[in-house]
Computed example of a mutant assay.
Amino acid sequence: MLQYNTHLLSRWLSSQGKQQVPGFGGFISSTGKVPPRKSTIDFYTPINQPITDNAVVYELLKRSEAATEEVGQPYTINTFDLGVVMKASPIVWKYEEEFSKHVNLIGKFHTAMNYMGRLTGRKCLGDGYAEILIEAGLANSGFLKNILSGKSYAKALFSLKAVTEALERLLFNVFLEEEKPDIPYEILFNLIHSCTSESLNSTLKDPTLLKLIGDYLQYQDKVRRGHLGKTGMFWLSMMDHARLVLTMDFAVKTNNFELFHHCNGAMADLFFAYNGHNYARPFSQTSTSPILVLFITSSLEL
């Protein structure tokens, strides 16, 4: 993703002294399009019954459908946590004609939280990730478990971003030493001093920058094949997982459903590997289901 690598380069270049470039989430917001209007949030009348009851879930689906029809949107998009999705999906499948235009999704928050838990709490268990957090002052021993499991979402995401950026800089410095590429300092400094959509678009058109990013990506492929040994292969795989979390964040912030769907599919391998199959199932197929194809096609009209 060009935006991710451009953000990495601008952060790397402005890291001497006070950091001028915001973190990835802030970078997306400052360089993205300004929404034409504010989002409207409304609340339904509370249903004082357990959410685990099928009748309650059915009522939620019908209320959501009515609200969707009221604003003229062709598809009803419902975002739930895993427990409610496991209740809602069989209802939609059983009454296929009645709910033919419903799209039920596991929310980005729940997906990312559990994905980070599989990554930092399972795959990275015993590899030194926990020690990095403690030595860097990002966590203490009493709070470490919640961070590694992803349950403390904000702190887990912040820690993952910090460690990933540190690893990215180490890898990029090795790339510079070995490959000695040309770096477009001037265009990057312009982006650093003016983080706007206009400056980002201008930066992404620079051929020197595009070549630099392309060469860096090719170097990463060499590392995946063992250029820096098995330790380098492992930590780069960890970085790839972290990039998926950040890319999903980018997809949500930019309303890019196809990218969101791709991220969920790419996350399936880690979920299946570490007993998260219920999170992997909805997107484990590389081909898109018919209802999702219809939604992607119609999303341009929303």
Rank of each mutant, 00 (worst) to 15 (best):
N5A: 02
L9Y: 07
S10W: 00
V21T: 05
P22I: 00
G23H: 14
G25N: 14
G25E: 13
K33H: 02
P35H: 02
P35W: 09
S39Q: 07
Q49D: 11
L60P: 06
K62W: 02
A67L: 15
E69F: 10
E69C: 12
Y75M: 15
T76K: 11
D81E: 14
V84A: 09
M86K: 14
E96F: 11
E96W: 09
F99N: 10
F109D: 08
Y115P: 01
T120S: 07
K123H: 11
G126Q: 01
E135L: 04
A136F: 06
F143P: 00
F158T: 04
L160C: 13
T164Y: 12
E165C: 10
L167A: 08
E168F: 11
I183Y: 11
I183T: 00
P184D: 07
P184K: 09
C195T: 12
L200Q: 03
L204V: 02
T208W: 05
L210R: 12
Y216S: 13
G229Q: 02
L236C: 01
R243L: 07
R243M: 08
N255V: 03
F260I: 11
D269Q: 04
F272T: 05
A273G: 00
A273L: 10
A273S: 12
F283N: 12
I291R: 06
F295E: 05
F295G: 08
S299G: 05
E301W: 12
